[in-house]
């Protein structure tokens, strides 16, 4: 029985709960005088619950199995790509980034057929551009 996954996640949530309660909540929530419920009350209660439940999982883990690490690594690759896409959009705008991002995504998935590639890289961003800016009169990111 492999209990690593639950021990790791349990410890994480315990640490998160403790950090929230002792450090983040006191520093990032204002105190007010008067009122019926202080802004920190609920976050503090939740943080304690989180810490206790996390500790419980770490001590008494189930045999939950993690997803295949290779798949998780691949997901990390896609997340990096999307992050780069958002960052690039903030500089150059959707119009220029979307086709490049679509091409990178489709290429990574393994798509090589020119028809599908052109549909995804040229047609789709163009359709979105037309619908959003021309039909709806809204701004693209």
């Amino acid at each position: 029985m492999n209990t690593m996954a639950d021990r790791v996640s349990g410890l994480f949530f315990m640490a998160l709960g403790l950090a929230m309660y002792f450090w983040i909540n006191p520093n990032y929530i204002e105190t007010v005088d008067g009122g019926n419920i202080s802004p920190a009350t609920l976050p503090n209660i939740i943080s304690i619950i989180l810490a206790i439940a996390g500790a419980f999982i770490a001590i008494k883990p189930t045999d939950h199995q993690l997803r295949n690490p290779v798949l998780m690594a691949k997901t990390g690759l896609y997340v990096t790509l999307l992050t780069a896409g958002i960052w690039a959009m903030s500089w150059f705008g959707f119009e220029y980034v979307a086709p490049v991002l679509a091409l990178a995504l489709m290429w990574l998935i393994g798509e090589r057929r020119p028809l599908w590639l052109s549909l995804g890289v040229v047609a789709m961003p163009a359709i979105i551009w037309f619908l959003v800016t021309q039909l709806l009169g809204r701004a693209l990111p």
């Binding site: 999307l82 896409g85 958002i86 959009m89 903030s90 959707f94 979307a98 991002l101 679509a102 995504l105 489709m106 998935i109 393994g110 798509e111 599908w116 549909l119 995804g120 789709m124 961003p125 979105i128 959003v132 809204r138 693209l140 990111p141």
Partner: peptide, 25 residues
């Protein structure tokens, strides 16, 4: 349609949709 085009298009649409709903990147 193939997953390649469905997923890449869905991601682009989510980008645009969420950006419209929350006003920005």
């Amino acid at each position: 349609a193939p997953e390649s085009i469905i997923f890449s298009s869905a991601l682009l649409l989510c980008f645009v949709g969420v950006s419209m709903a929350t006003s920005g990147l």
